[in-house]
Design a binder for these strands. Structure first.
Length: 658
DNA sequence: AAGGAGGGTTTTTTT
DNA sequence: AACCCTCCTT
């Protein structure tokens, strides 16, 4: 019990409650990650085999960290690694085993966000809905909401309240059918299909229930309906479920997260023991006071009293600048001064923002000062057109049925298969209920395909076959295959055509090198490298965090990230920027129902409580938007925070004109 | 079919 | 400002 001595009584209580339903209500900075890690280690120490405990975290990064720290706590006592995974990774493992029971092939593809968008576009086109009446993005979010409520297309159609909903439900059906035909599942399907599997096949559920004696879930406030159902099903036999969360930090409602799961946990699971962690060891009293003042404006929450354990002097600053450039310059100057003159480590700093468009200015300022920085969680890498194109090739190689990816690359780089022909083939395929490739002979016979195009199609098919054979012959040499593929299709030539500026060209082909690098890293890391596993990994993690390299880098740089990706992290010095109406709270939430503002407020709360010692809240008086400069109004949250300390806030505010 | 010009649209957050 | 779509010319 030596290791528990620096826990407070509440924390120790949480760690030492081994069974039954347990709800740990843990405010920001109360060490909840530590508690849940210790708890897992303690369970193992008391004799539960590591592999019989399932810990679910919110991100892959958190999973890795927890696995690492548990192993550290246990020392050499345990051979098996503790099971830690995200919901999505957990579901992938379950589905790879058992999805055939639902009529999907076991080697299904996982569609990432970009694939989903193409699929949505295709579905709309198939049912002849113009994108002007329903955008693919809007369709996707509707579909996601339906799926998170476990509603299938027919139900969705019958519960539709207006024409647009009905249209959406029809498109949903088409989208789902297309995905299934492509042997593909999207992110929500991973969860939804697992729920369906458990519902329809009790014997399969029983098998998975039998694998675990204990289940723990971190960040429980962000659980959505399907995730809840999966957990509830898994712990049904024993009720050994421990959840940790903070209702004030729920920031994923738009992804289906529902506060009622954490607020109603004790009534859902009778006999729940509730433990509150209210000692904040992270923030100074000033920072914590500011956060509490702000979040108190929310109504639907557990009122809690977070106790500070640190005293700060002038640890909070407010600043306003003329525009976003001045904001970036001043923030970076400030950091630069502290790094250069006061010897503060760059890794002490984080710049937090609401939207992904904001960091650009900061990046260029940081580069100008030659300060090391890292942009976290920007999905920029796998989101780049080049990367997506090549990945689409790879997906087509592995999954012949994946027509979404096929259509993306069938004429990229241009090879004489024009849009007109492709459209004709698709139309025919949809009419006859055939697959794309099956339709081609018919379409050719009907004279729909010009001779030149037909031979181009044949050449393309031969290319794919050649690479498929090669993949079958040497499945482990993925990086070599990709390099040759890029060469064969002359993607470099495509880049030169597409981008006129040499700098752009260089940048874009560097992306290709990076892709090959990340594949090489995967090859080294994996026990049994395979292209399909690489694709699965890159879909699930978005980007491939090269473990050590990235970690080392992240130790010595200034971190830039969105408020969403800052969840669960902490930094000695935080700059929360862009506190303006329309940005934080975001315009879309201002236009939406009132509760959305509460979520934006929680987002601001999360941002504030990331700061250990110093916090700077800044805004710009004007901002470029859509190529035009527009005035920005200070965020309502600033007034809410200052409501408690107006005079000091006013005094500290400085407007710096350019 | 390809490439370029011009016009319209866009920015929430992510496993 | 950056991107995508459409239309036009080659």
């Amino acid at each position: 019990m030596q290791h528990l001595r620096h826990l407070n009584p509440a924390q120790r209580d949480a760690v030492l409650t081994p069974s039954g339903p347990l709800l740990i209500l843990a405010g920001a900075g109360t060490g909840k990650t530590r508690v849940i890690t210790y708890r897992m280690a303690e369970l193992i120490r008391r004799g539960t085999p590591a592999e019989r405990i399932l810990s679910v975290t919110f991100t892959n990064k958190a999973a890795k960290e927890m696995q690492h720290r548990t192993a550290e706590l246990l020392g050499k006592n345990v051979r098996k690694k503790p099971q830690v995974s995200t919901f999505h990774a957990l579901c992938v493992r379950i589905l790879r085993q058992d999805i055939t029971a639902l009529g999907y092939p076991a080697n299904f593809t996982i569609f990432d966000r970009g694939d989903q968008e193409s699929a949505a576009r295709t579905a709309l086109r198939d049912i002849r809905v113009p994108e002007t009446s329903l955008r693919p993005g809007d369709l996707l979010s509707r579909i996601s909401q339906w799926k998170m409520r476990n509603q299938l297309p027919p139900e969705a159609a019958s519960s539709a309240e207006n024409d647009l909903d009905f249209l959406g439900a029809t498109a949903y059906r088409r989208y789902q059918a297309n995905l299934k035909a492509s042997a593909a599942v999207d992110f929500d399907d991973l969860l939804l299909l697992t729920v369906q599997l458990f519902d329809e096949h009790p014997e399969i559920l029983a098998r998975h229930q039998a694998r675990f004696d204990h289940v723990q879930i971190d960040e429980y406030q962000d659980t959505n309906g399907t995730q809840f159902e999966i957990v509830e099903a898994l712990v049904r036999p024993h009720g050994n479920l421990c959840v940790v969360g903070d209702d004030d930090q729920s920031i994923y409602a738009w992804r289906g997260a529902e506060l009622r799961h954490i607020l109603g946990f004790a009534s859902t699971f009778p006999g729940t023991k509730v433990i509150r962690l209210e000692d904040n060891y992270r923030c100074t009293d000033e920072i914590l006071h500011l956060a509490n003042t702000l979040v108190r404006n929310n109504r639907n929450r557990h009122d809690k009293q977070l106790l500070p354990h640190k005293v700060g002097v002038n640890s909070v600053r407010f600043a306003a600048f003329a525009d976003e450039n001045a904001e970036a310059q001043n923030v970076v100057n400030d950091i630069n001064y502290l790094v250069q003159q006061m010897n503060v480590s760059p890794s002490d700093f984080a710049i937090l923002f609401r939207t992904n468009e904001q960091p650009r200015v900061f990046e260029s300022e940081l580069r100008r000062h030659r300060l090391p920085y890292i942009v976290l969680g920007s999905m920029s890498f796998f989101d780049r057109r080049e990367i997506r194109d090549i990945l689409a090739y790879l997906k087509v190689l592995v999954h012949r049925e994946d027509e979404i990816s096929l259509l993306r690359i069938i004429n990229v780089p241009a090879r004489g298969i024009g849009a007109g022909t492709v459209e004709k083939i698709i139309k025919r395929a949809v009419q006859n209920g055939q697959r794309f490739w099956e339709t081609i002979p018919d379409a050719a016979a009907a004279g729909e395909i010009p001779k030149g195009t037909l031979s181009a199609i044949q050449r393309f098919q031969e290319l794919l076959d050649r690479y498929r054979q090669r993949l079958a012959a040497s499945p482990k040499n993925i990086s070599g295959l990709v390099r040759d593929l890029i060469e064969t299709i002359d993607y470099e030539g495509e880049i030169e055509k597409q981008y006129k500026e040499p700098q752009q060209q260089l940048l874009r082909s560097a992306m290709l090198d990076e892709l090959i690098d990340s594949i090489k890293q995967y090859e080294e890391r994996a026990d049994e490298p395979s292209l399909s596993e690489f694709l699965e990994e890159s879909a699930l993690t978005g980007r491939d965090d090269e473990d050590d390299k990235e970690e080392k880098l992240s130790q010595q740089g200034i971190k830039l990230m969105t408020l969403h990706s800052a969840k669960g992290l902490e930094f000695p010095r935080v700059y929360l920027v862009g506190l303006e109406e329309g940005l934080l709270p975001h315009k879309r939430s201002i236009d939406a129902p009132v509760e959305s503002i509460d979520e934006e407020r929680r987002l601001a709360y999360v941002g504030i409580t990331r700061a250990r010692d110093y916090l700077t809240l800044s805004r710009a008086a004007s901002r470029m938007k859509w190529g035009k400069r527009r005035p920005s109004i200070p965020s309502r949250f600033l007034f809410e925070m200052k409501g408690m300390q107006p005079q000091s806030a006013e005094q500290e505010e400085v407007i710096i004109e350019e």
